[in-house]
């Protein structure tokens, strides 16, 4: 198992996702001799997991059963330990496409946070790309590196514990794409530019508030980025249901044939029709953040005349 390559069977040291039922999963570090307690009973790693095929049904001690799934960045996103707010799959998918990530891409990211996006980036840029991820919180940067090792993607990533706004990304002229998820992204824009290849590339900033977006757009513009574009993507989940709609009873229809001296025929009770439909969840996540994308074109030789932000020099 690795987060960037499928295996057929579960091995000692793998991270597997135990599927307990609708929207209920839990990640498990597979270790010979270890046990995992679930609401359906105990899973014994040596017998129940190791050597089994991913996707198998595993019967627990109490007779209940679970499925054991191969980890993917998407399953990880809904199962990882939250050390920060995290990015979810809807935004991640959009970021991945809009940053034009693919095998071989070199990417800079800050902050690493809980590593939700990082895993998705690594999946996409493997086996020939590299991720430079910067996290200012020391414990978090250590923890995420540990996870990268467990997930066997550490050869694709460099974790730096520094402040991207002050110290940048630790690399120059190498990145095809830069992603910013920090409170003041505008302070890191010039570092983003420095980190990027001279031939250009794509950058994205994620911010929950519109004021952050405004400042970031201004910074992108001042730094000569082009095609600045802010978007928002919302996920709607549809629950598939069969619903039964009662039919109204308008009483006996006198225009219909009635037997002479008949008593009134009782109205057709129980009448209803069934429809297969979807219903929306009562509440949905109505906002995660704005995604602002921009393109760095090839470095120009001319020097920009800066008018607004005199502090920003190429």
């Amino acid at each position: 198992m690795s987060f960037v390559e499928y295996s057929d069977c579960i091995q000692d040291g793998d991270v597997a996702i135990v599927y307990l039922g609708h929207e209920s999963m839990t990640p498990v570090k597979v270790k010979r001799g270890a046990q995992t307690q679930t609401r359906y009973g105990v899973i014994r790693h040596s017998t129940d997991l190791i050597g089994q095929r991913y996707g198998s049904k595993v019967t627990c001690s109490k007779g209940g059963w679970v499925y054991v799934l191969h980890p993917t960045p998407e399953l990880w996103t809904v199962n990882l330990p939250h050390r920060t707010q995290i990015l979810y799959t809807t935004d991640i998918a959009t970021i991945t496409m809009m940053l034009e990530l693919k095998p071989g891409s070199v990417v800079c990211e800050s902050g690493t946070g809980s590593g939700s996006l990082s895993h998705a980036i690594l999946r996409t840029i493997a086996p020939t790309g590299h991720l430079h991820t910067v996290e200012f919180h020391q414990q978090r940067s250590e923890k995420v590196l540990e996870e990268f090792k467990e997930h066997r993607v550490d050869h694709l990533v460099t974790v730096r514990n520094q402040d991207a706004c002050k110290d940048g990304f630790g690399v120059t002229g190498v990145a095809d794409a830069v992603f910013l998820d920090i409170p003041s992204p505008w302070e890191a824009v010039r570092h983003a530019k420095t980190a990027m290849k001279k031939h250009g590339g794509r950058v994205c900033s994620f911010s929950p508030c519109i004021e952050q977006v405004q400042k970031t757009c201004e910074a992108f513009s001042d730094q000569g980025f082009e095609d600045i574009s802010s978007i928002e993507v919302l996920l709607r989940v549809h629950d598939v249901r069969t619903v039964y709609l009662p039919l109204p009873d308008f009483g006996p229809d006198p225009s219909a044939q009635i037997q002479p001296d008949s008593t009134i025929t009782p109205p057709q009770n129980h009448a209803s029709i069934a429809i297969k439909t979807t219903i929306p969840p009562r509440d949905i996540q109505g906002h995660t953040g704005y995604l602002t994308f921009a393109t760095k074109t090839q470095d120009l030789i001319i020097i920009y005349l800066h008018h607004k932000y005199t502090g920003c020099i190429l």
Binding site: I210, E211, Q212, P280, P281, R282, I284, Q285, H287
Partner: peptide, 14 residues
């Protein structure tokens, strides 16, 4: 709110 303007996070599904 000053510097904290955004759509409310919880939204009616339909």
């Amino acid at each position: 709110l000053p510097n904290r303007t955004h759509p409310v996070l919880l939204m009616s599904g339909g």
